[in-house]
Amino acid sequence: MKKLAMVMMTAGIICLVYSGWNIWKGRQLQLSTLQQAKAMTNEVGNSVKEQGKYSSSKKIDKNIIGVLEIPRLEKELPIVEGTTPDNLEKGVGHYKTSALPGNKDQIVLSGHRDTMFRRFGEIKKGDTVTLKLKSGSYLYVVDHMKIVHADDRTIIHSTKPKEELVLTTCYPFHYVGNAPKRYIIYAYPKTTRRP
């Protein structure tokens, strides 16, 4: 019995260390991606460069396209091109088939509920979100939210000539495993009302 207890305790410690290592590694990757995104959009100040966390001499990941700011959550999140599992570990993923800001069509960004979009449910109607890209900053106002089934593919579609920002994540927020639904936030350019 003592040997079994020791084996179980050792296995538990190994699992905790492994999980902790993965969480730390993921946060470091996200921080690095955010710093590169800020550098790319000219938002990195001298203080970060002086700390040696990011140097302009380092190569910027070609998949990084910008920064998503969510004031309600006091968050700045890196935006990467694509929604592969590797990309979503780095930041918020931009669906390649959707538009980019300023192109008067639907922009779709997706993130994991337990990393990038933690506290996502706290966002309210009327809140603002900003997308900062090389081409400039784009301010959007949250208009409404909805919950859909995970298999619902009608969310992603052209909205030409109206620009629409769609933020998606898995739902319920505290679900363990593959969540059966998606939480969708719709936002529109500040100067535009809902179509």
Rank of each mutant, 00 (worst) to 15 (best):
L165A: 02
G52T: 00
Y95F: 09
M6G: 08
P195I: 01
K132D: 15
K2H: 02
T168H: 10
I156P: 07
D61V: 10
P161G: 03
D105E: 11
I70R: 00
M8N: 10
G136R: 08
E50D: 10
K160Y: 10
T83H: 06
N103W: 14
V176G: 01
E69W: 03
G52V: 00
R182P: 06
A37W: 07
S137I: 05
T159R: 05
D114H: 04
Y18P: 06
Q35K: 12
M8D: 07
E43K: 02
N178P: 08
I13K: 00
T154N: 14
K62Q: 09
T128N: 08
S98W: 07
P78V: 13
Y138W: 02
L16G: 03
N42L: 08
P189D: 02
K124T: 15
K160M: 14
T192D: 02
S47K: 15
L139T: 05
K162Q: 12
K132L: 15
A187Q: 07
S137H: 11
S19W: 15
Y95N: 10
I185S: 07
D105T: 04
M40N: 13
K132T: 15
S56T: 12
K62E: 14
G93H: 08
I23A: 03
E69D: 07
R72Y: 11
T169D: 01
N178G: 09
E74D: 11
R72A: 08
R182G: 05
S137K: 12
G26K: 14
E81T: 09
T97P: 09
S135H: 11
W24R: 14
Y140M: 04
G126Y: 03
I60K: 09
Q51R: 11
V92S: 04
Y140W: 04
H94M: 11
L167Q: 03
G177K: 00
S57D: 10
T168Y: 09
D127C: 04
V17H: 05
I13V: 07
P172D: 03
E43G: 03
L77Y: 06
